[in-house]
Design a protein around this nucleic acid. Structure first.
Lengths: 367, 367
DNA sequence: CTTTAGCACCCCCGCGTGCGGAGTGCTAAG
DNA sequence: CTTAGCACTCCGCACGCGGGGGTGCTAAAG
């Protein structure tokens, strides 16, 4: 059952990656009750029982009736009772359904949007901007904010330069895209004179200037594979050197994290061992990067609930991401927040959404 | 009472900053017992009672006698009983006395030193080196490792390069001290040709390579006042910029933190609220930087116990720092570890000490 | 067939109680 | 000064108990 009217573009029926089980039909009333139950649980964190639900759902039903319905929901795996006689708590599948079909997102009013926009200073340099965005996300949501650094889609080699260091080491300086300068130390098989390095650099500059970095890499490989009799030693070194230089250039992505400590306030995160796991994941970065990478595949807001992320560290967490894009709708990167699964999605989603849009807009004037 | 034979140069009697109360005389036996008590407590984290102490101290004394002595220690504020009938736990003053006079540091054996040395790769660039050092500290001690970035005392201009950008902008690239690369966009009053920029760079390189930045700047100013023709505003602003960059960097010190999450393992850190405070302090950096700044005043190992640090976030923590220095004993920076006050000082102190020495040695060949 | 009231049951939670263990301070004797 | 003995204190733990919130089932009502 595709959810055509899926208000937010969440990872759901559109992709069969997570939603392997097709939901059995679930009638209007049950949906309404599930929604009320989840909203209630999000509000106070307690298991919610039939009585509260009866008073709270807006439907004129007796607790007994509600018990029957909720029992169905439990059979469907949408809610779960922590113990025999407690109320019900949403399961991950329950949250999934809620987010895909039920949640009523509360759009931000104009003044809030203005506030966010005001925080994203167009004048600041990129990394400061990312930090601000991240800090803002974490502040607005009281959770951890993450902003992945934007891709440099076209990495045109602008200039390359080598400087001799001691001990067979050479400092390579690459200028990419007008203003990005990278430098790294490479180890060579023999010492090089400065003049020699200059000639190598000249050759590479003449040959490759303006080309995309990946193209450069490919071309270098080609040249290596050809006959190479006519390639003199100089050329050979040039290529060897360039090869080494570009090898490390795998576009290692990175992100800016803020407000992790906010997470320590939630009672569902009280377990120090889990907390440690989570913070270690933040440090290692791999999990977050992988997850954000997945989010790149579709534009807009996506949500990973608990185990959907595939990382144990995020087990009791939800991750809400949104891509931010350039004016011509090219995706530049991803941002988002990480918090306990029990989060106020109706507020969080628009915050992430709007921040992403505004960040894209601010980023736009630049290259 | 100055402790002339203070084994490790700790913040103690030498400076009256923290040690305001002069210890009443405390006899040999009491010292021995205090030492045994603290060592025991460090080992198992439990309050230690008279019986354990009797069996453990090596002195042939009955529990009753020991009780008397320990009661004295309590009156002196060196130990403290959590409740009426528990054993004793060292107070901060107790730890202070222990560290200043009693602790028997266990020097690392040669193989351990070699291991550390092996991890500090002299080939790596500075920031990687700092990260490695920090990671190693945290691993060896199972606590949080901190390495403050070294000061750049002498800033020798190694190479300068200009690249024309669009719109009267020029990208200046400076290589300083072998491997530090700085770059910035400079706005110029008129467009420059590439050839022209090359000429300027060549001139600057020929003229000033190897000189200290401030010297360069002075010389440039001199030249500007004299023969105007050769000197370009461009050159001037390039050097100015380099200077700025470095000033900015020196002012805002920074550090590399590793293994914070280790701290989550200690049961004395189980309180999530305190943990949060601590981690926020790590993020804000101010507290750590201030503390490390204080450590710069004296060479060698220093220890801040609990409230001595003056920061609430470190209340149940101790900070063990050591300065690392160049060959000519000029202090380059500080490193250290942060952990619960109940830490194995006899092991931690030499680890920090040796790491600092080795880091200084590795850093030495450069600049 | 659905909804509802009633009922028995279940389980968590907080509270008081009692008990054993560990350690102390005091006292009096060696 | 040191030590044995003793009374005392306090913590931690297990146990039991009662109340509250909530459930599932059943049977009656709509």
């Amino acid at each position: 059952m595709p959810c055509a009217d899926c208000a937010i573009r969440a990872r759901c029926c559109q992709c069969d990656l997570f939603c392997t089980v097709s939901e059995p039909t679930i009638n209007e009333r049950a949906q309404h009750l599930l929604k009320a139950l989840i909203e209630r649980h999000i509000r106070d964190g307690q298991p919610v029982g039939s009585k509260t639900l009866a008073q709270n759902s807006g439907l004129a039903l007796s607790p007994a009736t509600i018990r029957n319905v909720v029992a169905d929901l439990e059979r469907m795996g949408l809610v779960h009772a922590p113990h025999t006689s407690a109320g019900r708590v949403p399961t991950e599948r329950g949250y999934r359904l809620f987010i895909d079909n039920l949640v009523s997102v509360r759009p931000l009013d104009e003044s809030q949007v203005q506030t966010i926009a005001g925080q994203l200073d167009a004048e600041a340099d990129t990394s400061t901007l990312m930090e601000n965005a991240s800090a803002m996300l974490s502040e607005l949501t009281h959770m951890a904010g993450v902003v992945m650094l934007p891709f440099q889609k076209q990495e045109a080699l602008r200039h390359i330069e080598f400087l001799p260091l001691s001990d067979n080491r050479v400092l390579a300086i690459l200028v990419i895209n007008e203003r990005d300068v990278q430098n790294r130390v490479i180890h060579t098989s023999r010492p090089y004179e400065r003049a020699e390095l200059e000639r190598i650099a000249n050759y590479l500059n003449a040959q490759f200037e303006g080309q995309d970095l990946s193209t450069v890499r490919r071309n270098l490989l080609d040249e290596m594979q050809g006959d190479r009799e006519h390639i003199d030693r100089l050329m050979h070194s040039a290529i060897e050197m360039a090869q080494q230089t570009f090898e490390g250039e795998n576009g290692a992505q990175d992100y800016v994290l803020a407000g992790e400590t906010n997470l320590m306030d939630y009672k569902e995160m009280a377990d120090v061992a889990r907390l440690r796991q989570l913070f270690e994941a933040f440090n290692e970065k791999r999990a977050v990067l992988d997850l954000f990478d997945k989010s790149l595949q579709a534009q807009g807001v996506q949500i990973f609930i608990g185990q959907e992320s595939g990382y144990e560290a995020f087990d009791n967490c939800s991750v809400v991401t949104a891509t931010y894009s350039s004016a011509d709708d090219e995706i530049l990167g991803v941002l988002g927040v990480i918090g306990p699964t029990r989060m106020a999605y109706d507020r969080i989603i628009p915050v992430v959404d709007v921040t992403a849009k505004l960040l894209g807009r601010v980023l736009n004037p630049r290259n």
